[in-house]
Design a binder for these strands. Structure first.
Lengths: 190, 190
DNA sequence: CCCATTATGTAGCGACTGCTACACACGCCT
DNA sequence: AGGCGTGTGTAGCAGTCGCTACATAATGGG
Protein backbone atom coordinates (compact mmCIF):
# COMPACT_ATOMS: atom_id res chain seq x y z
CA UNK A 1 0.00 0.00 0.00
CA UNK A 2 1.20 3.50 -0.77
CA UNK A 3 1.45 6.03 2.00
CA UNK A 4 1.80 9.24 0.04
CA UNK A 5 0.86 11.76 2.72
CA UNK A 6 2.46 11.13 6.09
CA UNK A 7 1.35 14.54 7.41
CA UNK A 8 4.24 16.77 6.40
CA UNK A 9 3.73 19.35 9.18
CA UNK A 10 2.56 22.59 7.68
CA UNK A 11 3.51 26.15 8.43
CA UNK A 12 2.75 29.61 7.13
CA UNK A 13 5.49 29.18 4.54
CA UNK A 14 4.33 25.84 3.20
CA UNK A 15 0.71 26.97 3.25
CA UNK A 16 1.08 30.27 1.38
CA UNK A 17 1.94 28.85 -2.05
CA UNK A 18 -1.00 26.45 -1.92
CA UNK A 19 -3.34 29.23 -0.83
CA UNK A 20 -1.97 31.46 -3.56
CA UNK A 21 -2.82 29.07 -6.39
CA UNK A 22 -6.38 28.80 -5.09
CA UNK A 23 -6.73 32.56 -4.81
CA UNK A 24 -5.27 33.18 -8.26
CA UNK A 25 -7.79 30.73 -9.67
CA UNK A 26 -10.90 31.57 -7.69
CA UNK A 27 -10.38 35.15 -6.61
CA UNK A 28 -9.79 36.85 -3.35
CA UNK A 29 -13.05 38.58 -2.57
CA UNK A 30 -15.26 35.53 -2.30
CA UNK A 31 -12.58 33.39 -0.72
CA UNK A 32 -13.72 31.90 2.59
CA UNK A 33 -11.70 29.87 5.04
CA UNK A 34 -13.06 26.41 4.40
CA UNK A 35 -12.48 26.30 0.62
CA UNK A 36 -9.08 27.90 1.11
CA UNK A 37 -8.22 25.28 3.71
CA UNK A 38 -9.33 22.42 1.51
CA UNK A 39 -7.20 23.75 -1.34
CA UNK A 40 -4.21 23.76 1.00
CA UNK A 41 -5.02 20.36 2.47
CA UNK A 42 -5.94 21.59 5.92
CA UNK A 43 -8.90 22.84 7.88
CA UNK A 44 -10.19 26.31 8.59
CA UNK A 45 -9.22 25.59 12.16
CA UNK A 46 -5.55 25.35 11.21
CA UNK A 47 -5.60 28.44 9.01
CA UNK A 48 -6.76 30.48 11.97
CA UNK A 49 -4.18 28.71 14.10
CA UNK A 50 -1.33 29.70 11.78
CA UNK A 51 -2.43 33.19 10.79
CA UNK A 52 -4.45 34.38 13.76
CA UNK A 53 -7.41 35.65 11.80
CA UNK A 54 -8.56 36.00 8.23
CA UNK A 55 -7.46 39.58 7.81
CA UNK A 56 -3.80 38.79 8.48
CA UNK A 57 -4.09 35.70 6.31
CA UNK A 58 -5.22 37.87 3.40
CA UNK A 59 -2.53 40.41 4.14
CA UNK A 60 0.22 37.78 4.23
CA UNK A 61 -1.18 36.14 1.15
CA UNK A 62 -1.17 39.40 -0.79
CA UNK A 63 2.38 40.08 0.28
CA UNK A 64 3.40 36.60 -0.80
CA UNK A 65 1.69 36.95 -4.16
CA UNK A 66 3.37 40.29 -4.66
CA UNK A 67 6.74 38.64 -4.06
CA UNK A 68 5.91 35.84 -6.45
CA UNK A 69 5.03 38.45 -9.03
CA UNK A 70 8.37 40.15 -8.50
CA UNK A 71 10.19 36.87 -8.94
CA UNK A 72 8.23 36.14 -12.11
CA UNK A 73 9.26 39.51 -13.51
CA UNK A 74 12.88 38.79 -12.70
CA UNK A 75 12.57 35.58 -14.66
CA UNK A 76 11.12 37.41 -17.63
CA UNK A 77 14.02 39.76 -18.35
CA UNK A 78 15.07 39.27 -21.94
CA UNK A 79 18.80 39.19 -22.63
CA UNK A 80 18.40 41.60 -25.54
CA UNK A 81 17.05 45.08 -25.11
CA UNK A 82 14.39 46.35 -27.50
CA UNK A 83 15.50 48.92 -30.06
CA UNK A 84 12.54 51.27 -29.90
CA UNK A 85 9.82 52.31 -27.48
CA UNK A 86 7.29 50.69 -29.76
CA UNK A 87 9.04 47.38 -29.52
CA UNK A 88 9.43 47.78 -25.77
CA UNK A 89 5.74 48.55 -25.39
CA UNK A 90 4.76 45.61 -27.54
CA UNK A 91 6.79 43.31 -25.33
CA UNK A 92 5.30 44.34 -22.02
CA UNK A 93 1.84 44.33 -23.51
CA UNK A 94 2.37 40.81 -24.79
CA UNK A 95 3.59 39.85 -21.34
CA UNK A 96 0.44 41.16 -19.67
CA UNK A 97 -1.83 39.59 -22.22
CA UNK A 98 -0.29 36.15 -22.34
CA UNK A 99 -2.83 33.40 -21.67
CA UNK A 100 -0.93 32.12 -18.64
CA UNK A 101 -1.12 35.65 -17.24
CA UNK A 102 -4.90 35.87 -17.51
CA UNK A 103 -5.81 34.45 -14.08
CA UNK A 104 -3.32 36.74 -12.49
CA UNK A 105 -4.74 39.76 -14.29
CA UNK A 106 -8.19 38.85 -13.05
CA UNK A 107 -6.80 38.85 -9.54
CA UNK A 108 -4.99 42.10 -10.23
CA UNK A 109 -8.20 44.02 -10.87
CA UNK A 110 -9.58 42.65 -7.66
CA UNK A 111 -6.52 44.01 -5.91
CA UNK A 112 -7.02 47.39 -7.53
CA UNK A 113 -10.66 47.41 -6.45
CA UNK A 114 -9.77 46.42 -2.90
CA UNK A 115 -7.11 49.07 -2.90
CA UNK A 116 -9.64 51.70 -3.90
CA UNK A 117 -11.99 50.49 -1.15
CA UNK A 118 -9.22 50.66 1.41
CA UNK A 119 -9.29 46.97 2.33
CA UNK A 120 -6.37 46.13 4.62
CA UNK A 121 -3.28 44.91 2.81
CA UNK A 122 -4.50 45.53 -0.71
CA UNK A 123 -2.92 48.90 -1.29
CA UNK A 124 0.47 47.75 -0.01
CA UNK A 125 0.46 44.82 -2.39
CA UNK A 126 -0.66 46.93 -5.33
CA UNK A 127 1.97 49.56 -4.66
CA UNK A 128 4.71 46.97 -4.37
CA UNK A 129 3.71 45.24 -7.58
CA UNK A 130 3.52 48.46 -9.55
CA UNK A 131 6.84 49.66 -8.19
CA UNK A 132 8.45 46.39 -9.12
CA UNK A 133 6.98 46.43 -12.57
CA UNK A 134 8.16 49.98 -13.12
CA UNK A 135 11.67 49.01 -12.10
CA UNK A 136 11.55 46.07 -14.45
CA UNK A 137 10.29 48.22 -17.30
CA UNK A 138 13.01 50.79 -16.74
CA UNK A 139 15.53 48.02 -17.22
CA UNK A 140 13.81 47.03 -20.45
CA UNK A 141 13.83 50.48 -22.05
CA UNK A 142 15.90 50.97 -25.20
CA UNK A 143 19.50 51.82 -24.42
CA UNK A 144 19.50 54.99 -26.47
CA UNK A 145 16.20 56.28 -25.08
CA UNK A 146 16.47 59.99 -24.32
CA UNK A 147 14.38 59.70 -21.13
CA UNK A 148 14.20 56.12 -19.86
CA UNK A 149 12.69 57.01 -16.51
CA UNK A 150 9.91 59.21 -17.88
CA UNK A 151 9.40 56.92 -20.84
CA UNK A 152 8.95 53.89 -18.63
CA UNK A 153 6.34 55.71 -16.57
CA UNK A 154 4.57 56.80 -19.71
CA UNK A 155 4.52 53.27 -21.12
CA UNK A 156 3.29 51.89 -17.79
CA UNK A 157 0.38 54.30 -17.74
CA UNK A 158 -0.51 53.52 -21.30
CA UNK A 159 -0.21 49.79 -20.78
CA UNK A 160 -2.42 49.71 -17.71
CA UNK A 161 -5.07 51.71 -19.53
CA UNK A 162 -4.80 49.37 -22.48
CA UNK A 163 -5.11 46.25 -20.33
CA UNK A 164 -8.10 47.69 -18.50
CA UNK A 165 -9.93 48.56 -21.68
CA UNK A 166 -9.20 45.04 -22.84
CA UNK A 167 -10.76 43.40 -19.80
CA UNK A 168 -13.97 45.40 -20.11
CA UNK A 169 -14.34 44.46 -23.75
CA UNK A 170 -12.90 47.55 -25.43
CA UNK A 171 -9.64 46.13 -26.74
CA UNK A 172 -10.48 47.57 -30.12
CA UNK A 173 -10.75 51.05 -28.66
CA UNK A 174 -7.37 50.68 -26.94
CA UNK A 175 -5.77 49.46 -30.16
CA UNK A 176 -7.08 52.40 -32.16
CA UNK A 177 -5.86 54.74 -29.45
CA UNK A 178 -2.40 53.23 -29.62
CA UNK A 179 -2.39 53.64 -33.38
CA UNK A 180 -3.13 57.31 -32.90
CA UNK A 181 -0.39 57.56 -30.29
CA UNK A 182 2.33 56.36 -32.60
CA UNK A 183 2.92 53.32 -30.42
CA UNK A 184 1.15 51.08 -32.88
CA UNK A 185 -0.08 47.73 -31.69
CA UNK A 186 0.10 45.18 -34.43
CA UNK A 187 -1.49 42.38 -32.47
CA UNK A 188 -5.16 41.60 -32.52
CA UNK A 189 -7.07 39.97 -29.75
CA UNK A 190 -10.57 41.23 -29.04
CA UNK B 1 -48.45 64.34 14.39
CA UNK B 2 -46.42 64.02 11.27
CA UNK B 3 -47.07 61.13 8.98
CA UNK B 4 -44.09 61.31 6.67
CA UNK B 5 -44.24 57.81 5.25
CA UNK B 6 -47.68 56.69 4.19
CA UNK B 7 -46.24 53.69 2.33
CA UNK B 8 -45.69 55.13 -1.11
CA UNK B 9 -45.89 51.80 -2.94
CA UNK B 10 -42.52 50.86 -4.29
CA UNK B 11 -41.53 49.39 -7.59
CA UNK B 12 -38.36 48.48 -9.42
CA UNK B 13 -38.12 52.04 -10.67
CA UNK B 14 -38.51 53.74 -7.31
CA UNK B 15 -36.21 51.22 -5.66
CA UNK B 16 -33.27 51.42 -8.06
CA UNK B 17 -32.12 54.96 -7.23
CA UNK B 18 -32.18 54.20 -3.51
CA UNK B 19 -30.27 50.99 -4.04
CA UNK B 20 -27.80 52.82 -6.26
CA UNK B 21 -26.79 55.35 -3.62
CA UNK B 22 -26.18 52.54 -1.15
CA UNK B 23 -24.10 50.61 -3.64
CA UNK B 24 -22.08 53.65 -4.66
CA UNK B 25 -21.31 54.27 -1.00
CA UNK B 26 -20.73 50.76 0.28
CA UNK B 27 -19.71 48.83 -2.78
CA UNK B 28 -21.24 46.07 -4.80
CA UNK B 29 -19.29 42.99 -3.92
CA UNK B 30 -20.12 42.82 -0.26
CA UNK B 31 -23.66 44.04 -0.74
CA UNK B 32 -26.20 41.64 0.73
CA UNK B 33 -29.95 41.80 0.49
CA UNK B 34 -30.81 42.90 4.02
CA UNK B 35 -28.58 46.01 4.15
CA UNK B 36 -29.63 46.92 0.62
CA UNK B 37 -33.26 46.58 1.61
CA UNK B 38 -32.85 48.71 4.70
CA UNK B 39 -31.16 51.43 2.65
CA UNK B 40 -34.14 51.40 0.30
CA UNK B 41 -36.69 51.29 3.11
CA UNK B 42 -37.91 47.77 2.45
CA UNK B 43 -37.15 44.19 3.33
CA UNK B 44 -35.09 41.55 1.62
CA UNK B 45 -38.38 39.80 1.07
CA UNK B 46 -39.59 42.66 -1.15
CA UNK B 47 -36.34 42.94 -3.09
CA UNK B 48 -36.69 39.33 -4.13
CA UNK B 49 -40.35 39.96 -4.87
CA UNK B 50 -39.56 42.81 -7.24
CA UNK B 51 -36.40 41.49 -8.89
CA UNK B 52 -36.82 37.74 -8.72
CA UNK B 53 -33.36 36.97 -7.38
CA UNK B 54 -30.20 38.75 -6.42
CA UNK B 55 -28.45 38.20 -9.71
CA UNK B 56 -31.06 40.09 -11.72
CA UNK B 57 -31.17 42.75 -9.03
CA UNK B 58 -27.45 43.34 -9.47
CA UNK B 59 -27.80 43.26 -13.22
CA UNK B 60 -30.62 45.79 -13.22
CA UNK B 61 -28.77 47.92 -10.72
CA UNK B 62 -25.63 47.98 -12.84
CA UNK B 63 -27.65 48.91 -15.89
CA UNK B 64 -29.34 51.69 -13.95
CA UNK B 65 -26.03 53.02 -12.64
CA UNK B 66 -24.62 52.93 -16.13
CA UNK B 67 -27.53 55.06 -17.32
CA UNK B 68 -27.08 57.49 -14.46
CA UNK B 69 -23.45 57.76 -15.43
CA UNK B 70 -24.41 58.54 -19.01
CA UNK B 71 -26.80 61.23 -17.84
CA UNK B 72 -24.12 62.72 -15.62
CA UNK B 73 -21.74 62.91 -18.56
CA UNK B 74 -24.39 64.64 -20.64
CA UNK B 75 -24.72 67.21 -17.86
CA UNK B 76 -20.97 67.77 -17.83
CA UNK B 77 -20.50 68.94 -21.43
CA UNK B 78 -18.77 72.30 -21.35
CA UNK B 79 -20.07 74.93 -23.75
CA UNK B 80 -16.55 75.78 -24.87
CA UNK B 81 -14.27 73.28 -26.51
CA UNK B 82 -10.70 72.99 -25.32
CA UNK B 83 -8.01 74.39 -27.62
CA UNK B 84 -5.44 71.64 -27.30
CA UNK B 85 -5.23 67.95 -26.47
CA UNK B 86 -3.39 68.86 -23.30
CA UNK B 87 -6.24 71.03 -22.16
CA UNK B 88 -8.76 68.40 -23.14
CA UNK B 89 -6.88 65.73 -21.22
CA UNK B 90 -6.57 67.95 -18.17
CA UNK B 91 -10.33 68.46 -18.18
CA UNK B 92 -11.34 64.81 -18.31
CA UNK B 93 -8.70 63.96 -15.75
CA UNK B 94 -10.04 66.63 -13.42
CA UNK B 95 -13.51 65.22 -13.98
CA UNK B 96 -12.46 61.73 -12.96
CA UNK B 97 -10.50 62.94 -9.97
CA UNK B 98 -13.10 65.31 -8.55
CA UNK B 99 -13.90 64.53 -4.92
CA UNK B 100 -17.57 63.96 -5.67
CA UNK B 101 -16.47 61.39 -8.23
CA UNK B 102 -14.41 59.39 -5.75
CA UNK B 103 -17.13 57.00 -4.51
CA UNK B 104 -18.10 56.30 -8.06
CA UNK B 105 -14.51 55.55 -9.05
CA UNK B 106 -14.26 53.12 -6.17
CA UNK B 107 -17.31 51.37 -7.54
CA UNK B 108 -15.86 51.53 -11.02
CA UNK B 109 -12.85 49.40 -10.13
CA UNK B 110 -15.17 46.89 -8.58
CA UNK B 111 -17.05 46.77 -11.87
CA UNK B 112 -13.80 46.24 -13.76
CA UNK B 113 -12.84 43.43 -11.39
CA UNK B 114 -16.25 41.80 -11.72
CA UNK B 115 -16.01 42.19 -15.46
CA UNK B 116 -12.67 40.38 -15.48
CA UNK B 117 -14.14 37.61 -13.32
CA UNK B 118 -17.09 37.24 -15.67
CA UNK B 119 -19.76 38.07 -13.09
CA UNK B 120 -23.16 38.41 -14.77
CA UNK B 121 -24.02 41.95 -15.78
CA UNK B 122 -20.70 43.52 -14.96
CA UNK B 123 -19.16 43.44 -18.41
CA UNK B 124 -22.26 44.88 -20.06
CA UNK B 125 -22.27 47.81 -17.66
CA UNK B 126 -18.56 48.41 -18.04
CA UNK B 127 -18.77 48.31 -21.83
CA UNK B 128 -21.69 50.71 -21.87
CA UNK B 129 -20.01 53.18 -19.57
CA UNK B 130 -16.76 53.14 -21.51
CA UNK B 131 -18.57 53.52 -24.82
CA UNK B 132 -20.53 56.45 -23.46
CA UNK B 133 -17.46 58.10 -22.08
CA UNK B 134 -15.63 57.68 -25.36
CA UNK B 135 -18.52 59.31 -27.20
CA UNK B 136 -18.49 62.14 -24.72
CA UNK B 137 -14.76 62.60 -25.06
CA UNK B 138 -14.96 62.66 -28.84
CA UNK B 139 -17.34 65.56 -28.50
CA UNK B 140 -14.88 67.34 -26.26
CA UNK B 141 -11.87 67.05 -28.53
CA UNK B 142 -10.39 70.26 -29.94
CA UNK B 143 -12.12 71.37 -33.12
CA UNK B 144 -8.94 71.51 -35.13
CA UNK B 145 -7.65 68.14 -33.97
CA UNK B 146 -6.22 66.20 -36.89
CA UNK B 147 -7.59 62.87 -35.64
CA UNK B 148 -10.39 63.35 -33.11
CA UNK B 149 -11.49 59.73 -33.11
CA UNK B 150 -8.04 58.26 -32.60
CA UNK B 151 -7.03 61.04 -30.26
CA UNK B 152 -10.04 60.46 -28.03
CA UNK B 153 -9.19 56.77 -27.80
CA UNK B 154 -5.62 57.59 -27.00
CA UNK B 155 -6.61 60.03 -24.28
CA UNK B 156 -9.09 57.53 -22.83
CA UNK B 157 -6.42 54.86 -22.57
CA UNK B 158 -3.98 57.24 -20.98
CA UNK B 159 -6.58 58.58 -18.57
CA UNK B 160 -7.70 55.17 -17.35
CA UNK B 161 -4.10 54.18 -16.76
CA UNK B 162 -3.51 57.42 -14.91
CA UNK B 163 -6.57 56.98 -12.72
CA UNK B 164 -5.62 53.41 -11.92
CA UNK B 165 -2.11 54.30 -10.91
CA UNK B 166 -3.61 56.99 -8.74
CA UNK B 167 -5.90 54.62 -6.86
CA UNK B 168 -3.06 52.22 -6.06
CA UNK B 169 -0.91 55.02 -4.70
CA UNK B 170 1.28 55.75 -7.70
CA UNK B 171 -0.14 59.10 -8.76
CA UNK B 172 3.39 60.48 -8.81
CA UNK B 173 4.45 57.83 -11.30
CA UNK B 174 1.50 58.64 -13.55
CA UNK B 175 2.27 62.35 -13.40
CA UNK B 176 5.89 61.82 -14.37
CA UNK B 177 4.78 59.61 -17.21
CA UNK B 178 2.44 62.29 -18.49
CA UNK B 179 5.23 64.82 -18.34
CA UNK B 180 7.31 62.54 -20.53
CA UNK B 181 4.38 62.10 -22.91
CA UNK B 182 4.03 65.78 -23.64
CA UNK B 183 0.56 65.80 -22.12
CA UNK B 184 1.82 67.52 -19.01
CA UNK B 185 -0.27 67.33 -15.89
CA UNK B 186 0.18 70.44 -13.82
CA UNK B 187 -2.00 69.32 -10.93
CA UNK B 188 -0.66 67.61 -7.88
CA UNK B 189 -2.61 65.25 -5.71
CA UNK B 190 -0.78 62.33 -4.25
C1' DC C 1 -70.32 43.91 -2.59
C1' DC C 2 -67.26 40.17 -3.74
C1' DC C 3 -63.55 38.41 -5.47
C1' DA C 4 -59.05 38.26 -7.69
C1' DT C 5 -54.81 40.29 -8.22
C1' DT C 6 -51.15 42.79 -6.15
C1' DA C 7 -48.35 44.15 -2.37
C1' DT C 8 -46.48 43.43 2.17
C1' DG C 9 -45.11 41.45 7.01
C1' DT C 10 -43.43 37.43 9.88
C1' DA C 11 -41.01 33.51 10.46
C1' DG C 12 -38.03 30.47 9.20
C1' DC C 13 -35.10 27.15 6.27
C1' DG C 14 -30.62 25.14 5.18
C1' DA C 15 -26.22 26.53 3.99
C1' DC C 16 -22.38 29.08 4.97
C1' DT C 17 -19.43 32.63 7.63
C1' DG C 18 -15.27 33.52 10.88
C1' DC C 19 -13.92 31.76 14.92
C1' DT C 20 -13.48 29.01 19.46
C1' DA C 21 -13.64 25.36 23.24
C1' DC C 22 -12.01 21.03 24.25
C1' DA C 23 -9.58 16.93 23.85
C1' DC C 24 -5.66 14.65 22.43
C1' DA C 25 -1.50 13.07 20.16
C1' DC C 26 3.14 13.99 19.60
C1' DG C 27 8.25 15.23 20.34
C1' DC C 28 11.58 17.58 23.36
C1' DC C 29 13.92 18.81 27.85
C1' DT C 30 14.97 17.79 32.50
C1' DA D 1 9.47 9.09 33.66
C1' DG D 2 7.19 13.25 33.66
C1' DG D 3 5.70 17.25 32.26
C1' DC D 4 5.08 20.77 28.55
C1' DG D 5 4.67 23.40 24.45
C1' DT D 6 3.27 22.56 19.64
C1' DG D 7 0.33 20.85 16.31
C1' DT D 8 -4.19 18.77 14.98
C1' DG D 9 -9.15 16.79 14.82
C1' DT D 10 -14.10 17.26 16.22
C1' DA D 11 -17.83 19.81 17.35
C1' DG D 12 -20.08 23.65 17.71
C1' DC D 13 -21.33 28.70 18.40
C1' DA D 14 -23.63 32.94 16.98
C1' DG D 15 -24.36 35.34 13.06
C1' DT D 16 -25.35 36.13 8.05
C1' DC D 17 -26.49 34.49 3.44
C1' DG D 18 -30.22 34.09 -0.40
C1' DC D 19 -34.60 32.64 -0.54
C1' DT D 20 -39.41 30.74 0.58
C1' DA D 21 -43.97 29.37 2.89
C1' DC D 22 -47.77 31.31 4.78
C1' DA D 23 -50.81 34.73 6.14
C1' DT D 24 -52.56 39.14 5.65
C1' DA D 25 -53.64 43.62 3.98
C1' DA D 26 -54.76 46.86 0.19
C1' DT D 27 -56.93 47.77 -4.16
C1' DG D 28 -59.52 47.77 -8.06
C1' DG D 29 -62.97 45.56 -11.55
C1' DG D 30 -67.30 42.86 -12.23
Amino acid sequence: MSKPDPKPKMSRETLLPLLAVHVIEHGLGGASLRPLAKAAGTSDRMLIYHFGDKETLVRDLLEYISNVYSAALDMAVGSDRPKTRQECFARILALGRGPQMQPFMTLWWEIVAGSARGLPGYKDAAEAMMAKQLLWLEGQMPEDDPDPAGGARYLMTLMEGTLMLGTVGHARMAREGLLASGLADHTRDD
